[in-house]
C-alpha cells in the first residue's frame, strides 16, 4: 500500500515538475477561464438581478471548459513526447498511472479555481469563501477530473483526438454539472443547507461510483 501511494506520488510529482518548467498548462487554463468569464459577462449582461440566478452556472461552465483544456493537454503531452510508453514500462500497476494523472489534473483544476474564485468574488460580490461552497468546488472537480482523465487517456490514442474529448466528456458529466451548479447556487443565495444538501449527495455518489468504475476499467485503456 505504501509503495502504491509512493508510486502515485511519483507520477503526480513528475507532472508538477514538468509543469513548473514552462507553466504552459496552468497559464493557458487560467487565461482561458478569465476570458470565458469576460465573455459571459457581456453575452449575458450579468446585472444585479441576473447574477443571483446565473453566476453559479457561469462559474461552473468556466471550470468545465478550462478543465477540458487542461485534460487534453495533460495526456497529449505524454503521448507526443513518448512519455506514455515510458510510464507503461514502469513496473507499477496501471491504476497507479490513472490515479497519478487524475490527481495531477485535479490539482491543476483546483489551482486555477483558487485563482479564479477570488476574482469572481471581486467582480460579482458573492462570498466564495464558505467552507461548504469550497467543498462543493472540490467534489465537483473530483468527479470531473476522474471521468475526464480516463476519457482523455482514451482520446489521445484516437485519430480525431483534438475534437473528441468534450463530445465524450460533457454528456457523461452532466450530473456533476447540474448538481454542482445547484449546490453552488444554494450557497450563493444563502439558502438553508437542508434545501440543497441532496445535490451534495449526488456529487458524492457520482464521485464514488465513477472513481470505482474508472479504477476497474483503466487497465483496458492502456493495454498495448
Amino acid at each position: 500500500m505504501k509503495l502504491y501511494l509512493r508510486a502515485v506520488g511519483a507520477v503526480i510529482w513528475k507532472d508538477f515538475r514538468a509543469e513548473w518548467r514552462n507553466r504552459e498548462n496552468l497559464s493557458a487554463m487560467l487565461v482561458f477561464s478569465l476570458l470565458v468569464i469576460l465573455i459571459f459577462n457581456f453575452a449575458l449582461e450579468l446585472d444585479l438581478n441576473a447574477r443571483a440566478s446565473l453566476s453559479a452556472g457561469v462559474l461552473w461552465t468556466t471550470f468545465i471548459f478550462a478543465g477540458t483544456i487542461g485534460l487534453n493537454h495533460s495526456l497529449a503531452v505524454e503521448k507526443d513526447r513518448g512519455c506514455l510508453d515510458g510510464l507503461l514500462l514502469a513496473p507499477v500497476d496501471r491504476s497507479v498511472i490513472y490515479f497519478g494523472k487524475a490527481i495531477g489534473n485535479l490539482v491543476f483544476m483546483l489551482i486555477v479555481e483558487a485563482i479564479v474564485l477570488p476574482i469572481f468574488n471581486f467582480l460579482y460580490g458573492f462570498n466564495v469563501f464558505q467552507p461548504g461552497f469550497l467543498g462543493v468546488v472540490i467534489l465537483g472537480s473530483i468527479g470531473y477530473a476522474a471521468v475526464g482523465t480516463l476519457l482523455s487517456t482514451m482520446v489521445v490514442q484516437a485519430r480525431t483526438r483534438d475534437i473528441l474529448l468534450p463530445i465524450l466528456l460533457f454528456p457523461l458529466t452532466l450530473p456533476v454539472i447540474i448538481a454542482a451548479v445547484r449546490a453552488s447556487q444554494g450557497f450563493f443565495q444563502n439558502l438553508p443547507l437542508a434545501e440543497f444538501s441532496i445535490w451534495v449527495n449526488i456529487l458524492v455518489a457520482y464521485d464514488l461510483i465513477f472513481i470505482a468504475v474508472a479504477f476497474m476499467v483503466f487497465d483496458y485503456i492502456l493495454e498495448d
Binding site: V147, L150, L151, M154, Q157, A158, L168, P171, L172, T173, L174, P175, Y206, I209, F210, V213, V217, Y220, I221, E223
Partner: peptide, 13 residues
C-alpha cells in the same frame, strides 16, 4: 475496447 468502456460509462451515468 474504447467503445465498450464508453458504453459502460454512459450506462452508469
Amino acid at each position: 475496447r474504447f467503445s465498450a468502456i464508453y458504453a459502460l460509462f454512459g450506462f452508469i451515468s
